[in-house]
Design a protein around this nucleic acid. Structure first.
Lengths: 252, 252
DNA sequence: CGTCTGCTTGAGACATTTCAATACGCGTGG
DNA sequence: CCACGCGTATTGAAATGTCTCAAGCAGACG
């Protein structure tokens, strides 16, 4: 509510409404669209930005829109009546929010960083889906990727130790940040609380395991605890207990 | 390998190759198809049956087909190198197996009971998807339902106690068996080991929690431990710690 | 400088696992 | 019919990993 839609405090990244210049054009739900379809999408789209911590959608809410996350990072969480919370997914740029055919959100969506969504009014989008195969096909691809990721995460939640869980998450973030050069380095987008929620642990356990990994030389932690580096990725993977077949927690 | 494809030892359920008579016709991936599309599917389909315990696909296997589970029940499991196993899904009649666009199975698929699949050769199926919207749209729906289910399960694995997990699973099975009449009753398709795998617990803990629920009068267990009944479903839901918004672990 | 928020660390409580033994249901063969 | 063995389920006691509660610490900000 304290946002002026479309203004945003960053240098022009979204100033253009032109889909052709969109940074995630080739990875989002619109990836396979060309002239006509893209025009149609462009006509119905609008941008909106949320500040860190703001709620994008409440569990059970009726969402009048669907959309693509263009910038920032958001979490999907589910809750039990007594307050226990479990993060069930993370949205990164190019990820799709909402589902055609159902307007009630099955989980809460919360902005972690400044987050901008490219929104489509639901009904128009559903019509588009019905008409054209490209959006629908891409959406199917993306959903199947998310499903694979969710199942990888079920393995983590069901069978991995606290140490393995933390190592797995750090490995994921580090691979994302891929600087190619030997000492991998990454800034954590998630605080300890969000990490704990994602991993099915408590804040304290996450903190302890990070300290333990640091003591064991698996990772190094910069002051503030939000930047980590990893001298040897193989060691980290070992600590994560991963199969050698690379897991894909964050879908492409 | 000891199977004669399409023969099956049961009374005619699948004797007909006619899709119109298929028991799950209206719920499977072909639900929205009519004359032409259905003909095309019918031409490329074939049946195959697996015995209990048989492996339908190994983790990492290349599957030359996709298909629909017509009869029986199968599990999806993922493993860690050291042997820990986590079930990540269950297939019931009308569920889809495999994913278009990727031939390697990300998990192991195992028959629990006698299981029959209606198979489609992969390439033909992918062509069909590209051509016609109905299959693709239905598949998207089903995938999104599965994704919701997977996320519900993440909440269970990440935050629920052993007692709650067992109660949740029993509630699910009981709701499926829905006899409508007050004393709900169901035969468990899964043994204790499979239940433990699904719930992220050990066999012993599952057994103990079932005993505890019985002691507390929440459920009754028939001899053999494979049939359970529930005098009061509300009590079971309470023990499951569910939100009042009905969860949909098994997608439609 | 004080307060706030987020992170770390410690000690004890607790839930689940582990290891080990026992019981049950059931088909097989004597 | 009983004895036997086998797979599956139950139960017990001790070990262990994670949580809970509580305190301390560091950086950010007014």
């Amino acid at each position: 509510m304290k946002q002026q839609p479309g203004s945003a405090a960053m240098p022009g990244t979204l100033a253009t409404q032109d889909c052709g210049a969109c940074p995630i054009r080739h990875r989002a739900v619109c990836a396979k669209c060309d002239g006509d379809e893209l025009d149609r999408l462009q006509q119905m789209k609008s941008y909106r930005t949320w500040a860190p911590g703001e709620t994008i959608a409440l569990e059970g809410d009726t969402l009048p829109f669907v959309g693509t996350l263009v910038r920032g990072c958001a979490t999907l969480t589910k809750s039990l009546e007594d307050g226990r919370v479990q993060m069930v997914g993370m949205l990164m740029p190019s990820d799709f929010v909402g589902r055609p055919g159902r307007s009630a959100a099955p989980y809460e969506v919360t902005a972690v960083t400044d987050t901008t969504l490219c929104l489509f009014e639901r009904q128009g989008f559903e019509r588009l889906i019905a008409d054209t195969p490209h959006v629908s096909t891409r959406l199917l691809e993306m959903s199947l990727n998310e499903l694979d990721a969710a199942r990888d995460w079920m393995l983590l939640l069901g069978r991995k130790t606290a140490r393995e869980r933390v190592a797995t998450l750090l490995g994921l973030v580090l691979r994302r940040a891929a600087t190619q050069t030997a000492p991998l380095r990454a800034e954590l987008p998630l605080g300890r609380e969000a990490m704990a929620s994602f991993l099915g642990l408590t804040i304290e356990t996450v903190s302890r395991q990070i300290s333990a990994l640091r003591r064991d030389g698996v990772i190094e932690v910069a002051a503030g605890g939000r930047t980590i580096l990893c001298p040897d990725f193989a060691t980290l993977r070992l600590a994560a207990g991963d199969n050698d077949n690379a897991e894909q927690i964050f879908p492409d």
